[in-house]
């Protein structure tokens, strides 16, 4: 951990470690967000605030509703109720692409690189405000050639930073799991987001790459962006996050600095204690199975 703290990190020291705690400078504020799937409440968040300029981790057992919350906040799913805002802009029923344009960009748990496009084309796609993406201008190359060159050089810089420059002309489908995660992150940066939301950035990444990925995530904060990530890898959570929000059964059950959360009895009960050594994927299936059975019963009734 860096010795000197930014103002944003320092401010967190004053925040109460209660679920839904108010932050001094929140970038995202939401309340009353619920989403049900066939009678099962996947998300039921009373209040949530994300501090600007720091790395916030969202943890919790599988099925806790973390990814669903991600989907809701970014407009990829519609909640049953609730309101939330980003930088003061209300985001209820704002479509996903507009959320991204506002500066809130997410990645996916199962990476969504465009396998049949080359790495550099994947990157170029990320840039916003492209003249050449307008139907009427697109056929005339001289109108967008200049901008395309700018975009390409920015993309090349990012590829170099993420050590993907050697793969520039390869099809993205040929990359390894870890490289795909890197490419997705780099592509998200092409949008130049204020808040970047990473859904399990460490899943399926080989250990050798993990350390450099951690460095990349920290570098995002260091260049002034806010990071929110979902993660199971407790090492990662402990090492790089400034703040941790714990979810279980759709609700936020605890919040705090990594040290205080790991010591919190509620967290140990809800998450670490009970299933500390169990394989999380088994839990997931059990939960899903229960869900399916519940639905079948419901239909029969």
């Amino acid at each position: 951990m860096a010795a000197e703290l930014t103002a944003a990190q320092a401010a967190l020291a004053q925040v109460a470690t209660d679920p839904g705690a108010k932050k001094p400078d929140p970038i995202v504020v939401g309340s009353g967000i619920t989403r049900t799937f066939g009678g099962l409440k996947a998300v039921d968040v009373e209040h949530i605030e994300i501090q600007r300029g720091v790395i916030t981790a969202l943890i919790g057992p599988n099925g806790a509703g973390k990814t669903t919350l991600f989907n809701l906040l970014t407009g990829f799913d519609e909640p049953n109720s609730g309101q939330w805002s980003f930088n003061g802009n209300a985001l209820q029923s704002v479509s996903a692409y507009k959320v991204a344009r506002l500066g809130m960009v997410r990645t996916f748990q199962l990476t969504k690189v465009l396998a049949k496009l080359t790495v550099i084309e994947n990157m170029r796609l990320g840039a916003t405000g492209q003249k050449g993406e307008k139907f009427w201008l697109a056929p005339f190359k001289w109108l967008w050639k200049g901008q395309e060159d700018e975009i390409t050089s920015r993309a090349d810089d990012l590829l170099a930073r993420f050590k993907l420059d050697a793969k520039r002309e390869d099809f993205a489908g040929s990359l390894s799991g870890g490289q795909r995660k890197l490419l997705e992150m780099a592509r998200a940066l092409m949008v130049d987001p204020e808040l970047i939301m990473l859904d399990e950035p460490m899943a399926g990444v080989n250990p050798a790459l993990k350390q450099s990925l951690l460095g990349h995530v920290q570098s995002l904060r260091d260049e002034g962006r806010t990071v929110l990530f979902v993660e199971h890898d407790m090492d990662m959570v402990r090492h790089i996050s400034d703040w941790v929000i714990v979810m279980a059964q759709g609700q936020i059950v605890a919040e705090g600095t990594p040290q205080s959360v790991m010591a919190d009895q509620r967290v140990i009960d809800a998450y670490l204690g009970a299933h500390h050594d169990t394989d999380l994927s088994e839990l997931d299936e059990a939960a899903l199975e229960a869900e399916v059975e519940a639905e079948i019963k419901e239909e029969q009734a």
Binding site: F76, A96, Y97, R101, K112, M190
Partner: peptide, 9 residues
């Protein structure tokens, strides 16, 4: 979905 997440309509 990937395209949407990058701000394209």
């Amino acid at each position: 979905d990937a395209v949407r997440s990058l701000g394209k309509n």
